[in-house]
Amino acid sequence: MLKQMISVPESAYMYWKETVRQMNHIGVGSLIIIGIISFFTGAVTAVQFAYQLSGSYFPPYLLGFVIRDSMIIELAPTLSCLVLAGKVGSNMASELGTMRISEQIDALEVMGVNSTAYLVAPKIFAALIIVPPLIIISAFLGVYGGLLAAVNYGIAQEMFEKGLLYMFDPFNVVIMLVKAYVFAFLIATVSCYQGFYVKGGALDIGKASTRAVVFSSILVVLFDYLIAVVMT
């Protein structure tokens, strides 16, 4: 599928227009869910880590440090992308599946449009452009959620902020972005593949979209581990 995509576009404008539409679809459509989820993930992590450590000898300001690093290294990229696999991945698969079943893809082919390039490439590009900023937003909101929850739990805000600034390693942000690009690519390609090759009827579109979610989730955690091993 990826090989078929490489060809001269018929009209660059049309491809750009489709890419923008997809960016809007993926980005704006997912902003709210990513926002809410990151906020609560940060909050939960704070409450639970505070609880987990309450019996041990960690100083309380470490909470801010732990939240910041957990969000950046693991929770923001992985959790967001698992959620995106559920939302964007299933969406891409069912959109392409519907186009396949209702012969819209055949219609493009008969017109002489390279349907793989026109339908799949803009989705992958849009995902690569829009997912990393979503992850960055997610990291910020997660830390903010952690801060509010920690204050609520009885930890002084200054303490938390001290932890936030403690031993910041910019390399962690690099890890986060690498994960973001890899996951975005995985979700988009897996989901497009599942949707593009649907055969049958409406029920099969549902199955393809479930497969898209399942396979991209598995690949996301698999690559999460591989990246963690290679980069840390």
């Binding site: 869910i33 809410i36 559920g86 969406n91 979209s209």
Partner: peptide, 24 residues
């Protein structure tokens, strides 16, 4: 068929949000 796809996406999104909310 399109609405089935939308419903299944909504199912995923809303349950994810509610799960994390109740988690907290």
């Amino acid at each position: 068929a399109i609405q089935i796809g939308e419903a299944s996406t909504k199912a995923v999104v809303h349950s994810n949000i509610l799960i994390l909310l109740s988690d907290y």
